[in-house]
Design a protein around this nucleic acid. Structure first.
Lengths: 104, 104
DNA sequence: CAAACACATAAGTCATAACTTATGTGTTTG
DNA sequence: CAAACACATAAGTTATGACTTATGTGTTTG
């Protein structure tokens, strides 16, 4: 199931950190690794898991590969979450602001 | 991290199924198990993981325990997701409708 | 064009997590 | 009040997954 693949991918703290780093902007694997005490193969394997879950995508640029967030994955989460809006308390300000932003 | 705990909890297909079942309404563990080829201890353990992640909560009722969705968990996901609204394509109709619903 | 580089992949190791069976605790029922 | 019930917990097994050390492929550079 695509949802569980996405949640499983984000359920690992290291991968979550990698993903969050990528939300700041596209980056290659070597740059991603900076300050992250993780081996090169481990990074490569984590990126493969995130890619298989459609959370990121890549683009070859010479001998580098630029990785970036793939909106598809986030959309799956957003749509899944939208099904349960009945459970969200109205008091969520951050969410309300989001709604206004997107309703324009 | 609370986010990774939530994602890890939902990353297991069996637990995801249990959670989805609970979104239909509160239920005790025995009812949850119906049609689910899962042992009683396994169910109990899965419920504990979901509870620890604040995705569900429970209420004792005699010798039964009613489990129900805890909005706290979903709110964490919603707030996390809201941070990345820049990545959501505008074409998501389901999401737009959600926004209108909540903007009232 | 040989060396350095960026990354992927293979294969093996070790920790974790999902399951099992057995048993325990509290509650209801006949 | 003894048996059945609803659930939790302990302990052990097995599958999975996160890592490691090679090694391979393609690309750039001196």
């Amino acid at each position: 199931m695509i949802e569980t693949d996405i949640f499983k991918a984000l359920g690992d703290p290291t991968r979550f950190q990698i993903f969050e780093k990528l939300t700041a902007g596209a980056m290659n694997a070597t740059t991603l690794r900076e300050g992250m005490k993780i081996s090169q193969p481990a990074m490569s394997q984590h990126l493969a898991v995130l890619r298989d879950a459609k959370l990121i995508r890549h683009e070859k640029q010479g001998r580098f590969i630029q990785y970036e967030v793939n909106p598809d994955g986030l959309v799956v989460v957003a749509e899944w979450l939208a099904k349960y809006r009945a459970y969200w308390p109205q008091r969520i300000e951050a969410l309300k602001e989001l709604l206004k932003d997107m309703d324009e």
